[in-house]
Design a protein around this nucleic acid. Structure first.
Length: 974
RNA sequence: GCCCGGGUGGCGGAAUGGCAGACGCGGCUGACUCAAACUCAGCUGUCCGAAAGGGCGUGCGGGUUCGAAUCCCGCUCCGGGCACCA
């Protein structure tokens, strides 16, 4: 190890003052206060009702505040200093709120189910419950050491049976409801059943395969119809199969290049029967309700983009295989459609494939095959082999083959060729498009490659023509690219309707109305968002509270059979493979004594044999509602008492959505957790279980802590803490290494743990350092050598209060000077501002200034108590242990956690005199000192009287004088 | 390609229309010490100058304004997200 300042070792030398604030003393103080906070329940926040309501009376008239962190996954390697950045930030804020008279709920739980926990357990060959609980215990220890003021009674893990009992219950609420499009909300499925019985409602399209009237269906048939409406349903859909993980994944868990976000394994699309949650029913509300949220525009736009709402029309093109449905956002360009494309996986591909090539088929359309059948089969197979990644790396060269069939354009009866091409995706819209090469760049490229006609039906604007050096009447076939802008429609008329001359919106509306009238199409809203794939073939997740009876239809377990606990398993490993065509095998399927059961579901048919669902829920399930459980963690009757939810999260006005008052976490959850949790919350809201319509009213994304990493000449990372800087080069054991910058972690060998920092400096120093490096939302580099600045700062403050030699209190009884008071109140105002805007770095700077002033003003001690006490309180949210210690040494027996935060008095914020800059032509040339309330004329006169200014103005013509009282004087001269 | 952020000393950052660089790290100098460490004090944007003082300076170019790091337009570089979504 290189020589490094290690304060703890200084005690050995022992000529240091005994009562200096050093790391050893900090740790004693910190442990003392952590124990006391626990023993006294200092951070217990009382609920209005239920088990945790003790002490609510005293808090009832205070405003409440719910501060929440995105809860961590309890990793086996523990925390590094980057993890607690947000946790410290919320703690500082929560402590500030307590001291400004709020009832604050703040706690921390653990998102402990899921793939990584299971993989860690596999690696260590231990049951995931054992590793998970050990990891949670370790993380609790690490976080406690930082002095976070959490209510420990409210801490939960998603893996607690008491917790996932309610995750299962909420799943059954989702399973037990359907989306009433007319009412625009979810309703209990029993109400649907009643309406179907009464004949006031018919089954929704696609939910009744045989078309048998409801009244004539048997129990199993009715169950099938109801299941078709549910918000949680089983469906055979193309899913993301990841053989490397042995499970299927949600779209959100697959990267753009077609690999698993976790583990980076290839992912393949294939049809499988899986649980789906009907999040698409909420697509519009998930977009609309973003408006009422205090979130960053970046996150909002990410959610909007992910949901991907687009309006257009669905249009039917006639074909030998029956109508081909296409979706378009530009129905106004229908007259310019010169061909149709279907995705290789499209169900009509077979029927559209002709027996032979029509007369005159260009060779380039046939893919070199003798018949369309051969060409299409070969193309479809090649397309299926191309992974998403290939589609990326191979660029966007358009490929495809002709099916040999033609389709009929409904607007003009023209016959257009039908192609199969992989630039049309089965997963979006209808998997088929009408191609308008003149006005869509992708279609344009395909048309160029296949020599298809390009027909302009929108007049390009002059600027576009000029930019491409085209005459207004240049045929579209000569254009270098498609014109995708808006313009007047042209060449777009049939016997009944004409769009010619119409602007975009009007043209769209006109043609859509005509299509609807003809029965050839209708207006349609399309989303990129798809239903949420909710099954995983894993052991370590919540079991579905679902069984299958003799008819194979899923049925809910009744409430009295919850929780459905995970059965114990020796070998819980998933079956992974590198073969794309391998089959998923959920580990629970191997527990034969568990997979079947004879149960009485309470329907009056007595005990019956059932087969259990053997998939488990994805790890997102628990994080979809944990913020609600924090509010009532011990409630056995409900997942949260409505009175507790309404108190902490309820709307505060008619147009307020309610929710957590401040939610802090990383930006990486923009479309995963944050979208899923909003969806669950809205279901619970629709069903009347919560009063808030959004879970997180205000979201704040904290930055990342990044760190330098070093590579040796072989390209291997070396331990960053052992690298030294030497004349601008970086050396590891003498050899030069190269520096990089990246995420802190094990793989880059640059992790620094909070435990290390607590030992070397104490938790208060670490907290101050992390908060001082920048505003909370900003990413910042970790620099261990800079931590000492905050350590010195605390030593300096300590020294203002405590004699380092004797340990005696150094605070005096004297009156503060006016200067002291002015500085104190200025600091107070600025510290408060930093607290409220989560820019704790500025708060710390102002406290530092005040402390530096007092150090200089009272070199022999005797800082007046009237300044010392507020200083301790100002410091308290940021460095709570040392502040508590000083407060206690000042003679206060109680914790300062609920003391009033200092208030800045306006009288002390203004000086008697102020120094103003005097500018000549905008450049500062001198400064004048004037009474603070000096008016315009007075400061101008004072400025003119200033020697330097007078010299500059001498002989010049003053054109204008700008004199702003309290700000400056500016002379504009010729 | 599209959509978001963001460029201020050697480094983290402060100042959101009115004295650019608060506060801290690092660096330099000094005090204490036999010495060092710790601690404390001073200096530290850059250029010219012995100094006093002055020039320049917030990615680049333009604009608005008495006055711009801050507002507007164009460009550039960096980071993040999305990407054949019809």
């Amino acid at each position: 190890m290189p020589a490094m300042a290690d304060p703890t070792s200084n005690d050995a030398a022992s000529d240091l003052p005994v009562h200096r604030y050093d790391a050893a003393l900090a740790q004693v103080v910190e442990a003392r206060w952590q124990d006391r906070w626990d023993a006294e329940g200092t951070f217990h926040a009382p609920n209005p009702v239920g088990e945790l309501s003790t002490g609510f009376e005293a808090m009832a008239d205070r405003p409440k505040h719910y501060v929440l962190d995105m809860f961590p996954y309890p990793s086996g390697v523990g925390l590094h200093v980057g993890h607690p950045l947000g946790f410290i930030g919320t703690d500082v804020y929560a402590r500030y709120l307590r001291m400004t008279g709020h009832n604050v709920v703040h706690t921390m739980g653990y998102d402990a189910f899921g793939l990584p926990a299971e993989q860690f357990a596999l690696k260590t060959n231990t049951h995931p419950r054992v590793t998970t609980e050990a990891n949670v215990a370790n993380m609790r220890r690490q976080l406690r050491r930082l002095g976070l003021g959490h209510d420990p009674r409210r801490s939960v893990s998603t893996t607690d049976v008491d917790f996932y009992r309610w995750t299962q219950w909420i799943f059954l609420q989702i399973f037990g409801s359907w989306y009433d499009v007319d009412a625009d909300r979810a309703r209990p499925i029993a109400e649907l059943e009643a309406e179907l019985d009464a004949g006031t409602r018919q089954p929704a399209a696609g939910t009744n395969p045989n078309g048998t009237p409801w009244a004539d269906l048997d129990a199993s048939g009715r169950r099938a119809v109801l299941n078709g409406h549910r918000l949680a349903y089983l469906a055979e859909v193309p899913v993301n199969w990841c053989p490397g993980l042995g499970t299927v994944l949600a779209n959100e868990e697959v990267t753009a290049d077609g690999r698993s976000e976790r583990g980076n394994f290839p992912v393949y699309r294939r049809p499988m029967k899986q649980w789906m949650l009907r999040i698409t029913a909420y697509a519009d509300r998930l977009i609309q309700d973003l408006d009422g949220l205090d979130w960053s525009d970046a996150i909002k736009s990410q959610q909007r983009n992910w949901i991907g709402r687009s309006t257009g029309a669905q249009v039917r093109f006639g074909s030998p295989a029956g109508p081909i449905e296409v979706f378009t956002t530009r129905p106004d360009t229908l007259f310019g459609a010169t061909y149709v494309v279907v995705a290789p996986e499209h169900p009509l591909v077979g029927a559209l494939t002709a027996d032979a090539w029509p007369e005159g088929t260009p060779a380039s359309w046939t893919g070199g095959a003798r018949t369309p059948g051969e060409a299409v089969a070969a193309y479809a197979q090649a397309a299926s082999r191309r992974s998403e990644l290939d589609r990326q790396t191979e660029g966007k060269d358009k490929t495809g083959v002709f099916t040999g069939s033609h389709a009929t354009n409904p607007v003009d009866g023209s016959s257009v060729p039908v192609f199969v091409a992989d630039y049309v995706l089965m997963g979006y819209g209808t998997g088929a498009i009408m191609a308008v090469p003149a006005h869509d760049q992708r279609d344009f490229e395909f048309a160029r490659a296949f020599d298809l006609p390009v027909t302009a039906v929108v007049a390009p604007d002059p600027a576009w023509l000029a930019e491409h050096d085209l005459a207004a009447d240049a045929p579209a076939g000569t254009w270098p690219e498609a014109f995708g802008g808006s313009g007047a429609a042209t060449a777009s008329a049939n016997a009944e309707v004409s769009l010619d001359g119409l602007a975009l919106a009007e043209a769209k509306a006109t043609i859509t109305a005509w299509l609807e009238q003809q029965g050839a199409g209708e207006g349609k809203v399309q989303y990129k968002l798809r239903d949420w794939l909710f099954s995983r073939q894993r052991y370590w997740g919540e079991p579905f509270p679902i069984v299958f009876g003799a008819d194979g239809e899923p049925q809910a377990l009744p409430d009295d059979l919850l929780p459905l606990e995970l059965p114990p398993m020796e070998d819980f490993s998933p079956k992974t493979s590198d073969r794309e065509d391998s089959e998923p095998e959920p580990p629970l399927g191997r527990v034969t004594e568990w997979t079947t059961a004879t149960l009485d579901l309470g329907r009056g048919d007595g005990p019956q044999p059932y087969r259990r669902e053997v998939n488990t829920m994805p790890n997102w399930a628990g994080s979809c509602w944990y913020e609600l459980r924090y509010l009532d963690p011990t409630n056995r009757e409900a997942f949260v008492d409505p009175a507790n939810e309404a108190y902490w999260m309820g709307p505060t006005s008619a147009d307020d959505c309610g929710g957590v008052d401040l939610y802090v976490g990383g930006v990486e959850h923009a479309v995963l957790h944050l979208l899923y949790a909003r969806f669950w919350h809205k279901v619970l809201f629709d069903l009347g279980h919560v009063s808030s319509s959004e879970p997180f009213r205000r979201l704040f994304n904290q930055g990342m802590v990044q760190a330098f990493a070093y590579k040796d000449d072989r390209g291997f990372y070396v331990e960053a803490s052992e690298v030294v800087e030497q004349d601008g080069t970086y050396r590891f054991q003498g050899a030069e290494v190269t520096r990089e910058y990246g995420k802190m972690g094990k793989s880059l060998q640059n992790a620094v743990t909070p435990d290390e920092m607590c030992e070397r400096y104490g938790a208060d120093t670490l907290r101050l350092y992390e908060m001082f490096t920048g505003p909370l939302d900003q990413s910042r580099p970790w620099d261990t050598t800079a931590v000492v600045g905050m350590y010195r700062q605390l030593q300096r403050i300590w020294r203002l209060f405590v004699d380092e030699q004797s340990g005696e209190l150094r605070v005096g009884a004297g009156e503060p000077t006016d200067d002291d008071r002015r500085r104190l109140h200025r600091a107070t105002a600025a510290v408060r501002d930093g607290m409220e805007t989560l820019r704790f770095n500025t708060s710390i700077a102002r406290i530092t200034e005040l402390a530096n002033h007092l150090t200089a003003a009272y070199p022999d001690g005797g800082v007046p108590r009237a300044v010392a006490e507020p200083l301790a309180l100002l410091l308290a949210p940021l460095a709570p242990h040392v502040a508590e210690e000083l407060w206690s040494r000042l003679g206060h027996p109680a914790s300062l956690a609920y003391e009033d935060f200092p208030v800045a008095e306006a009288a002390w914020l203004v000086d008697d005199t102020v120094e103003l800059p005097v500018q000549v032509n905008g450049k500062v040339r001198s400064r004048i000192t004037v009474p603070a309330d000096a008016d315009r004329d007075a400061i101008e006169a004072a400025a003119r009287a200033d020697g330097k200014v007078a010299a500059l103005l001498d002989g010049a013509t003053v054109r204008k004088v700008v004199a702003v009282p309290g700000k400056l004087v500016n002379f504009v001269v010729a």
